[in-house]
Design a protein around this nucleic acid. Structure first.
Lengths: 268, 268
DNA sequence: AGATATTTGTTCGTATGTATT
DNA sequence: TAATACATACGAACAAATATC
């Protein structure tokens, strides 16, 4: 008898996954903080009685999940890390890639969340923040000279809202708002729209944003909320309008339109 | 001179990461769909002139990102997969783990999103869906017999909203709502609250949910929205109240309270 | 600045496990 | 049952990166 019969042996998990889970548990149990070191490969090989390759696969898995980073050289090894916002968004995009999101899907969320994040940002934004917002507006307060500048202006318009979100004290709300902005940058149909040499209602967007800054300065939460809500509603209509021109048909039944564009996928 | 000087040679990327990106690109370029096969290890070793271990690390990275699955045996190998919702939430939790979310942070989102998702679900839910909702309510329409049942009831209350979200046609909105519910299941402070033998306003919650079902049946979007909004506002207050009892202090200044609980982390 | 020690990164060869036929 | 085809795992060696002296 080379092995005792345990109560639940049927599921033969892969060695690598066992080690990944074991390391995760030790991270939790020991309350390891960013910067703390994990044992190096050599020690892990002994600790888990596994080969170098197996340990490295496990560490790779943890690295991709954003839990650790690995450094070479003396004193090197695996270190606890906090996942970057960029990586989190990238992983989430992989999931939503297959979900065929539409412009309406995204704006359904932006219409209610951007007003919230603006109000919460109002409480902690400072003069430096207002300066940054005005600097961004300056990027698109004039006609673009070429296609490249037109594209940069579209991206900057979204960056405006990213900066607003930065000043929110609700990390979850801010993250989701910034993720929605990223989706608008990556969504295939949006890229098609941005490339078009159409005048994309620049003036109206800037007007809303200047009003927004004024309302934030005066600390008027209700007005901030209302302006951002109108801004988003207008932006959605503008996007849908441009999309309709692109695809050739026009908006008669908003619901039918919403379904019609479901096929569009997120670009990598 | 053993090496020509190229314009951008300084960043010496690791072989594994190069292979990961290369495989990602081929997936995109070839438009590979879930179920499609990638070349097997042997072929990849030749294609990238890399060893088995390096290829395996690359495949492991892709597996963790939810892009591929790997099967052994004849006809096995790496197959394109769509990431499961569970994995997506797990990866996202890793990111938010370090962000110290509060109950108020989460409910700020739920208060505006759950009403939206309920309205969109109303359009496509069927009799089977209503049946499922009623079945869930039956789990907590009575006093719990023991601690275990009390816990199950708390979880079922959240599952009610998960089922509602299932019927939404906005995959993004539905995902975020379900993720918020998962956060409430995992957040350390919430678990402390659920464990408490306090009567958690069961009756009021059920009342809202029965009203909600009735409004959905009658197709009254405005009422559905309003009921869910009130339901969420009430649920937040109930949670904050129980939290106050737990931590010993009481709510005088909501803002100060919100900040005070920022320290609580998400449990793994 | 250069040599050196330490640690990860990569390779090769081989053996074992597992699912299909 | 046996043969086959594939992933999974092991071990020893070498290559590359990096901190330290």
């Amino acid at each position: 008898m080379t092995q005792t019969i345990s109560p639940t042996p049927p599921i033969r998990r892969k060695r690598t996954d066992e080690i990944v889970d074991a390391i995760k548990r030790t991270i939790i149990e020991h309350g390891l903080q960013p910067g703390d070191r994990l044992p190096q490969e050599r020690e892990l090989m002994e600790q888990f009685a596994a080969s170098k390759g197996t340990i490295r696969e496990a560490l790779k898995a943890l690295e991709v999940q954003g839990l650790i980073g690995i450094r070479t050289g003396p004193g090197g090894g695996a270190f606890i890390e906090t996942m970057s916002e960029q990586r989190a968004m990238s992983l989430l995009s992989n999931y939503l890639f297959a979900k065929a999101l539409s412009i309406s899907d995204i704006y359904a969320l932006r219409k209610v969340l951007e007003p919230l994040v603006a109000v919460s940002a109002m409480r902690s934004i400072d003069e430096r923040g207002y300066q940054r917002l005005n600097d961004i507006i300056a990027i698109y307060d004039h006609e673009p000279a070429d296609a490249r500048e037109r594209w940069d202006q579209r991206m900057a318009e979204l960056d405006f809202h990213a900066v607003v979100a930065e000043y929110s004290d609700n990390a979850l709300l801010a993250f989701i708002c910034r993720f929605l902005q990223r989706l608008l940058k990556d969504l295939a149909i949006c890229r098609d729209i941005y490339i078009q040499p159409k005048p994309v209602a620049r003036q109206e967007g800037i007007q809303y944003q200047r009003q927004l800054i004024a309302a934030m300065r005066s600390g008027d939460a209700e007005t901030v909320h209302a302006i951002m809500a109108r801004h988003m509603a207008y932006a959605e209509q503008a996007m849908l309008g441009l999309q309709a021109e692109l695809t050739g048909d026009f908006i008669h039944d908003p619901v039918a339109r919403g379904r019609g564009e479901k096929r569009r996928k997120i670009a990598p």
